[in-house]
Design a protein around this nucleic acid. Structure first.
Lengths: 181, 181
DNA sequence: CAGGACATGTAACAGGTTACATGATTAT
DNA sequence: ATAATCATGTAACCTGTTACATGTCCTG
């Protein structure tokens, strides 16, 4: 149920439209949570009917009307309560793990190729994150508050990508050895 | 859609009942994929209506009847095709990431406590995995085929847990520094 | 006799994905 | 002309979670 809360976090930081929230999900919040615009609009509707957000319709010229959402005091209360409530530990979910187990029933060379594709995509992602780290957080020890928390989330993304890439390399080496044996 | 394929992998390795597959999801396959018994029974029904598995009802004395499922040749074909088909890269999903961003609206000390709980749970999981590694795969370089793939999946679980624990430690240190400042 | 293992299922709901739909402006 | 950006929405579907339901055997 973190989608509701991710949206509330975004609105607590600043008011915005569903569209703008969607863009954040494609960028900063997207490092650790993704959502499509349909999910966002649907959830905003629910948050509104639950009284956690309000909105103001703004008509623009040459642009479609937009609804600027603002978190309510009730929404802030829900968010702060959620922030201190226990989160269940998430089980792993790896399609590639399943695929590795299926490797013996398919073509080993193709599975290796697939792993290399994933490795490269995650490497590109890692480079992007490292670029953010260097540009936006050159002096981590000086960070406090929101910026510190954003930095720490980014660090999580970096560690995750690094670990995944190292695992891919380990698997590729092992499967190539098996293939040539 | 990996649940169907995870079940097919299990049945390709050996025939079994929904109950037995569920136990595997609580153990080995569960390192990287989880499923409840309801999902498994529902999916087995679908796999059967799609002709990918067949089953034989076995009556037992003193036990409820069971259905022993076997993968069909059509099922094997689907599995081998899936094994070589591209898998989309999975976006990250981290409740704790959202929670960290919400930390400024809640109680920092509580968030730190929460992180410590997760750290400890993942540490326990890591120790379990390392135990498996030592007991079941003492000589990784000698592994081939199914056992090698199982080992590599376990390696993925170990790396994942290690990375997560290190990240928790980094975050805990940073937030404790912030709290005492 | 209580609880766990074995064994399968229905129903309702929540959350996520995909397709379709509309419509203006701006940049190439 | 064509695509991208801004901006919101409906509908159908698939996947995952939670609660409820049934019934026996074995172990402590």
């Amino acid at each position: 149920m973190a989608l509701e809360h991710a949206i509330l976090v975004s609105l607590a930081e600043r008011p915005g439209t569903g569209y703008e929230i969607g863009q954040q999900f494609d960028r900063s919040i997207g490092y650790f949570w993704s959502a499509t615009h349909q999910q966002i609009y649907r959830t905003l509707k629910k948050l509104h009917s639950d009284g956690l957000v309000s909105f103001e319709s703004v008509s623009q010229d040459g642009r479609p009307d937009k609804k600027v959402y603002t978190i309510s005091s009730e929404g802030r209360k829900v968010l702060s309560e959620w922030a201190v409530s226990p989160t269940p530990v998430q089980p792993l979910r790896s399609d590639l793990g399943v695929k590795l187990r299926a490797a013996e029933f398919g073509d080993l060379a193709a599975v290796i190729g697939e792993l290399k594709v994933h490795r490269d995509e995650h490497l590109a992602q890692l480079k992007l994150y490292i670029g953010f780290q260097e540009n936006f957080y050159p002096d981590p020890d000086a960070l406090i508050g929101r910026k510190l928390h954003q930095y720490l989330v980014l660090r999580g993304g970096i560690r995750q990508e690094e670990g995944f890439i190292e695992w891919c390399d380990e698997v590729i080496v092992a499967l190539e050895r098996e293939l040539s044996a």
